[in-house]
């Protein structure tokens, strides 16, 4: 069971959260200018990395707020938490 640190509430167990998947996906628009291919990339195609994943989480049974984390999908180590409206941080061996 993961322990996720909510930036507003502190460290809590996985069962209080919902993982919202990959973060920083740009929603294309307006609709009439977006090709089917581009729209399908936005909807379905994901980086799905084996390693650091930038993803958003909701503290569902807590403050109800979304935030971002950088998490290793193999070790599950949470390398960094950062606000929902920030750009993805650069993760190096050092910041880990």
């Amino acid at each position: 069971m993961l322990q996720i640190t909510c930036p507003h509430c502190g460290p809590r167990s996985e069962i209080e959260f919902r993982c919202g998947g990959e973060s920083h996906i740009q929603r294309p628009g307006p609709p009439e200018d977006v090709s089917d291919a581009k729209w399908s990339e936005y909807l379905f195609f994901r980086k799905n990395p084996k390693g650091i994943h930038f993803e958003r989480w909701l503290h569902r049974f807590g403050c109800g707020r979304w935030f971002n984390i950088a998490r290793d999908t193999v070790s599950h180590e949470v390398v960094q938490e950062y606000p929902i409206d920030s750009l993805a941080p650069t993760i190096t061996e050092k910041t880990r």
């Binding site: 998947g21 399908s40 990339e41 379905f44 195609f45 994901r46 980086k47 799905n48 990395p49 084996k50 999908t73």
Partner: peptide, 18 residues
Amino acid sequence: GHTSVMAEKAGFRLPIIS
């Protein structure tokens, strides 16, 4: 399970989450 990892090496992406 690891298709995205291989696809990335070949330079494309897939509608997959592991």
